[in-house]
Design a binder for these strands. Structure first.
Length: 446
RNA sequence: UCCUCGCUAGCUCAAUUGGCAGAGCGGGCGGCUGUUAACCGCUAGGUUCGAGGUUCGAGUCCUCGGCGAGGAGCCA
C-alpha cells in the first residue's frame, strides 16, 4: 500500500494507492457511492461499488456523515468526470477504514452561508475548497517572498512585537500592561528596528503580524495582519521601486507555477496575472493628482462626484486608488506624495520640501495599495526637526536618532501587506478570507 | 463617528394591503450503477433579535435597545 498525497495523484495513475482524509461530500446512487475526500493537499473523488465491498461496510459508507475521517485504498483511475482539486482522477474504494464517524450535526452544509455564520464557523469554513485554496495561495505568497529575499542578500531579522512608548498617537495602538515598566504596545511596524538592523546587516527584512486598533470597517482592513518589511542600506527611491517590482513579480510567478489548481478552483482569470512583468509603470503624485482632478471635474453624477472629490495635497481614498489602477494592466507605482500626508521620517524631495520620496504600489483590477515605502531621512538635524515638529517624544526616539550619527547613509524600505496581495492574486473581494482566523473590529472569535 | 441595509427553522431565504408562518438545503426513512452543492418520494423541525406601544388582529406599523453587513471617514 502506497500512501499518497492527493495533489500528486496524477503520478499514481493505474497504481493502487491509499489516501487518508475526511469526507467533504457524499453522494449515493443506489449501488454506487461517491465520496469527495480531502486530505489537506487536495480533494479527490472516491467511488465505492456495492459489489466491491462487504455488505455491512458498503452500508456504512452509504451513510457516512460529512467530515468523517477515513483511510481509503484502491486503484487510481483517470476519469474526466471526476471532480476535485486537482480533478480528473478518482480512486475505486477496495478497502476503507473509518477512523471516525462524524456527528450528524455538522453546521456547515455545502450550500451558501452568510458572512457572519461562516466566520463564526471559521474553524470549519477553512475546510471548504474556496477558503482552502485562498489559504494555500497565501502560504505560497509568504514562501515566495522569503525565497526571493533570501536569495538576494537579505537577512531575516525579526523585530519586536511588544514595543515601548508610542511612536505616534496611541489611538491606533493596542495597549497592554508591562510589569513595572508601565504600558507596552503591540507593534504596528518593524521599520524603525529594521533601520537599526541595516547598519549591521546591510539588507534585512522582518515578516510578522502587525496590529492596528483602527476603527476601519472596510474590505481592505484587519486589526491583525501580516506585513513583510524589507529595508535596504545605500538605496534610493528608484532602486527601491526596482526591488519591489522584482519581488512582486517573483511572487506572482511562483503562485502561477505552484497554485494553478487552487486558482482554477477560485475561478481566477490567470491571464491577468500572467501579463504581470516589470518594469511597472511609474506615476508621480502630481500626475495622478492632475488626472484625478480632471476626473472629478468631469463627473456628473453627484454621488460619485462626492466620492471622487480631490485636490492637490489630499491623500488618495479608496475610490481614487481604484481609478488610478484602471489606467494600467500592471501594478503601478505612485511616488512623491505630499509630505503633509505621509510619515515624519520620509526624505524630502530635493528642491521641493512639500513633497517626499515616498512610493505606494497599487495592484491592478481595482485592488489598490499593496506596498507602501519611502527613502528615509538620513540626516540627524533634519530628522530631529521633524520629530519636534510632529510633537513626538524625543526620548522615545533617542536610539532611532542616534542611527543618524554613526555611519548614516541613504536608505529605503517598504511594507507589503500579505493579505492584500493574496486577495489580489486570488481575485476575491474581502481580505478577511485571506488569513486563517481574521481579526476585525467586530470579531475576535474563533 | 456618519450614511445605507438587514435580523423569520441548523443554513439560505419567502410570506401580497396588517389577516392560517412557508420553500430549498441540511437531518431521519425509502428508491436509484456516474454523481458533480445529484435527483425522486415520505418525514421531523419555529420564543419571527429583545422590550414596550398601536390594533379585533403585528413577521409586517411606531418608539427604544441589541447584533451584524456594505460604504465613507480613519489608516507609516
Amino acid at each position: 500500500m502506497t500512501l499518497i498525497r492527493v495533489e500528486d495523484i496524477a503520478k499514481y495513475e493505474g497504481q493502487e494507492a491509499t489516501v487518508r482524509g475526511w469526507v467533504y461530500n457524499r453522494t449515493d446512487k443506489g449501488k454506487l457511492v461517491f465520496l469527495l475526500v480531502r486530505d489537506g493537499s487536495g480533494f479527490v473523488q472516491c467511488v465505492a461499488f456495492k459489489g466491491d465491498l462487504e455488505e455491512h461496510v458498503f452500508d456504512q459508507v452509504m451513510r457516512l456523515p460529512q467530515e468523517s475521517a477515513v483511510v481509503i485504498t484502491g486503484p487510481v483511475r483517470a476519469d474526466g468526470r471526476a471532480p476535485g482539486i486537482p480533478g480528473g482522477y478518482e480512486i475505486s474504494v477496495k478497502d476503507i477504514q473509518i477512523v471516525q464517524v462524524a456527528d450528524l450535526d455538522y453546521p456547515m452544509s455545502l450550500k451558501e452561508h452568510g458572512v457572519d455564520f461562516a466566520l463564526d464557523n471559521r474553524h470549519f469554513w477553512i475546510r471548504f475548497p474556496s477558503q482552502w485554496s485562498i489559504l494555500r495561495v497565501r502560504a505560497t505568497v509568504m514562501a515566495a517572498a522569503r525565497e526571493w529575499l533570501d536569495s538576494h542578500g537579505f537577512i531575516a531579522m525579526d523585530t519586536p512585537i511588544l514595543t515601548p512608548a508610542a511612536a505616534e498617537g496611541t489611538t491606533t495602538l493596542f495597549e497592554t500592561e508591562y510589569f513595572d515598566e508601565g504600558k507596552a504596545y503591540l507593534a504596528q511596524t518593524g521599520q524603525l528596528y529594521n533601520e537599526a538592523n541595516i547598519f549591521a546587516f546591510g539588507k534585512v527584512y522582518c515578516f510578522g503580524p502587525t496590529f492596528r486598533a483602527e476603527k476601519s470597517k472596510t474590505r481592505r482592513h484587519l486589526t491583525e495582519f501580516w506585513m513583510l518589511e524589507p529595508e535596504i542600506a545605500f538605496c534610493d527611491l528608484d532602486e527601491l521601486m526596482e526591488i519591489e517590482e522584482q519581488l512582486i513579480t517573483h511572487i506572482v510567478q511562483r503562485v502561477l507555477r505552484d497554485r494553478q489548481p487552487e486558482l482554477c478552483a477560485l475561478k481566477r482569470d490567470t491571464s491577468k496575472l500572467e501579463a504581470i512583468r516589470p518594469p511597472f509603470p511609474r506615476m508621480s503624485y502630481d500626475q495622478a493628482a492632475d488626472y484625478l482632478i480632471d476626473l472629478y471635474q468631469r463627473e456628473t453624477d453627484p454621488e460619485r462626484k462626492e466620492l471622487l472629490k480631490f485636490e492637490w495635497g489630499m491623500d488618495f481614498g479608496a475610490p481614487h486608488e481604484v481609478e488610478l489602477t484602471k489606467l494600467h494592466d500592471q501594478p503601478v507605482f505612485i511616488y512623491g506624495y505630499p509630505t503633509a500626508v505621509k510619515a515624519f521620517y520620509m526624505e524630502p524631495w530635493p528642491g521641493r520640501p512639500e513633497v517626499c520620496k515616498s512610493v505606494d504600489l497599487l495592484a491592478p483590477e481595482g485592488y489598490g495599495e499593496i506596498c507602501g515605502g519611502s527613502e528615509r531621512i538620513s540626516d540627524y538635524t533634519l530628522l530631529l526637526e521633524r520629530i519636534r515638529k510632529e510633537g513626538l517624544p524625543e526620548s522615545a526616539f533617542k536610539w532611532y536618532l542616534e542611527l543618524r550619527k554613526y555611519g548614516s547613509v541613504p536608505h529605503s524600505g517598504f511594507g507589503m501587506g500579505v493579505e492584500r496581495v493574496t486577495a489580489w492574486l486570488c481575485g476575491i473581494d474581502h481580505i478577511r478570507e485571506t488569513i486563517p482566523f481574521p481579526r476585525t473590529i467586530k470579531r475576535v472569535y474563533p
